[in-house]
Design a binder for these strands. Structure first.
Length: 554
RNA sequence: GCAGGUGUAAUCUAGCGGUCAGGAUUUUAGCCUUCCAAGCUAAACACUCGGGUUCGAAUCCCGACACCUGCACCA
């Protein structure tokens, strides 16, 4: 498989002439086209069918956003490995009790603490040196001691930090969605398995911002009878059931998750993933990220076993809350009531006659604080406000409780995020494996779906003489003018040319023969059946275009 | 990162201390050829890298890098 990838120009190991680097691969000419076609198919579904907007964020970002997202802390552990049994331990955990505050120590200090106390592995073996396991690539932004920056480990954060802009762009209504195709970077400790675990990888992520109290989805009814293979975390057994049934039984958390499980199924199978080798596995409670309410992975069966290629997570309000906390920006949505409500409440009204003389300039701020409260904040006649960072208790000389009638038009909520996140490299590789077909005599055909195939049509004159090559070149040009990727070939025997196109995954080959010169018709050969269709040369362009058309499923 | 294995052209491989590193596939040019890797003629392309041992290293030794298999790691 990997030899075909290299031979035919799908995937090359990166920097090969310098010895190569593990976890980095380059896409060759066909691989690049295949990747672009898969991404394009994905956009057709998410942008055209679902109507989501798309952005393109930066790869490098300041430390603050990865502090907020949790990646700085979760991705950077100091650890040691036992030389004897190979077990790894968090170095700061081993230093507990030997130092008052082990997680504040640098690598060298921690090393010294462990050495001085002769800390050994439970198996009795010696530990190797303390190492930093930081899965993010660190860099400096700007010259000199510029700000610390990181290459993003996932693309999602670019969408979250743009939430306010996107919320306005999408006319301040929930639900809305934003997609992004881009790169993520993780300095994996030991990448293996070819393009399955990469240090630099391509992701296609969608972030859907939904009402926390209403996770229904407008077109849910269109998909609720669709059947998918699920592996729920309750008994970890494969079951086939409809989306509707799974949502009703509470196996899938909500309608939106269910809807996008189907959208994912539809996308993956359209891209060429074999439905028989595709399932959706629910994360175990222990496996789930701390913020996730529910999470389903699309897994395909490839030579490395069942492999996660898409994760569909209900991330709750975690991301936006974190960024609100760290950035102080307001990342909420305004939920307008159908009818404005008249609400009566006991409000706290400041008495400026007393506040002003005592607090001077701070009185304005206190007013704001008091207005944000209501009578329930009063305990024993006292209400607590913050002045210059210090809590101050105010008695009723400074305020009065009054009954007010207010018209409330809605409430502000932090939207919940549902995230279908796709590993583009893994999807591409799965498509290649599922398309790969080898006959007993070693004849290889890549049965890529026409939609994603790098080359759509091979154009051949039966022989490069008697004017056949002229007609073929004209047809080739006509196809390219319509945006169809072609490959013109007049070398060697016709069989060799077919074989070449079969290995490249080209779905159709058009051949110009002597009959074409007389009657104007050509043959179109189908890659998978090698059957030939005869049609007028003029019909080729519309026929191919019709074959490539994709209907929206919802 | 640890342990073991492997590294010869674009691909698959022969050679395992001693002529110019051999073959097959592929690719290119030409001839031939009326639809599925046909044939003929020519050509292009390799010992992963760096040290060492030796009169002489693709071959033996050491190190680096990459790949494979386990272990560990994998928001």
């Amino acid at each position: 498989m990997l030899s075909l990838c290299k031979r035919r120009g799908f995937i090359y190991p990166a920097y090969e002439i310098y010895g190569g680097i593990a976890g980095l691969y380059d896409y060759g000419p066909l691989g690049t086209a295949l990747k672009a076609n898969i991404a394009d198919l994905w956009r057709r579904i998410y942008a055209l069918q679902e109507g989501f907007v798309e952005i393109d964020g930066d790869n490098v970002g300041p430390e603050a956003i990865f502090k907020a997202s949790g990646h700085v802390d979760n991705f950077a552990d100091l650890s040691v490995t036992c030389k004897q049994c190979g077990e790894s331990y968090r170095a700061d955990h081993l230093a507990k009790g030997l130092h008052p505050n082990p997680d504040s120590l640098s690598i060298e200090e921690l090393q010294k603490v462990l050495r001085d106390n002769n800390v050994k592995c439970p198996c009795g073996g010696e530990f190797a040196d303390v190492e930093e396991f930081n899965l993010m690539f660190k860099t400096k932004i700007g010259p000199g001691n510029g700000r610390t920056g990181y290459l993003r480990p996932e693309t999602a954060q670019s969408i979250f930090v743009n939430y306010t802009n996107l919320y306005r762009h999408c006319r301040e209504k929930l639900p809305f969605g934003c997609i992004q195709v881009g790169r993520g970077f993780r300095n994996e400790i030991s990448p293996r398995q070819g393009v399955i675990r990469l240090r630099e990888f391509n992701m296609m992520e969608a972030e859907l911002f939904v009402d926390p109290e209403d996770k229904s989805w407008p077109r849910y009814n269109d998909v609720k009878d669709k059947v998918v293979k699920l592996v729920p975390n309750t008994d970890e057994k494969e079951v086939e059931m409809t989306i509707g049934q799974a949502v009703e039984d509470g196996i899938i958390g909500n309608q939106t998750l269910g809807y996008f499980i189907w959208v994912t199924y539809d996308f993956l199978t359209s891209a060429g993933i074999d439905p028989a080798k595709l399932r959706f596995r629910q994360h175990l409670r222990t496996e789930m990220a701390h913020y996730a309410a529910d999470c389903w992975d699309a897994e395909t069966l490839i030579s490395f076993g069942w492999t996660e290629i898409v994760g569909i997570a209900d991330r709750g309000c975690w991301d936006l809350s974190q960024h609100m906390k760290f950035s102080k920006a307001d990342l909420t949505a305004f939920k307008r009531f159908d009818e404005p409500k008249d609400v009566e409440r006991d409000a706290i009204k400041p008495k400026f006659g007393a506040l002003g003389p005592r607090f001077k300039g701070a009185a304005g701020d206190i007013k704001k604080q008091l207005e944000a409260m209501d009578a329930s904040a009063v305990h024993d006649d006292l209400v607590t406000v913050t002045v210059d960072g210090q809590p101050v208790d105010l008695d009723s000389t400074y305020y009065e409780v009054v009954r007010v009638k207010e018209k409330v038009n809605g409430v502000r909520v932090i939207p919940h995020v549902i995230e279908p996140s796709h590993g583009l490299d893994r999807i591409l590789y799965s498509c290649l494996e599922h398309a790969y077909s080898e006959k007993e005599d070693g004849y290889i055909t890549l049965k890529l779906k026409p939609a994603v195939a790098p080359i759509k049509v091979g154009v051949f004159p039966l022989m490069a003489k008697d004017g056949m090559e002229v007609v073929a070149q004209a047809l080739d040009k006509a196809l390219r003018e319509e945006g169809v990727a072609t490959y013109y070939d007049d070398s060697g025997s016709i069989g060799r040319r077919y074989a070449r196109m079969d290995e490249a995954g080209t779905p159709w080959c058009v051949t110009i023969d002597y009959d074409t010169l007389e009657k104007g018709d050509v043959t179109i050969r189908d890659r998978d059946t090698s059957e030939q269709l005869r049609m007028s040369a003029d019909d080729v362009v519309p026929w191919i275009k019709d074959q490539l058309k994709r209907k929206l499923s919802c």
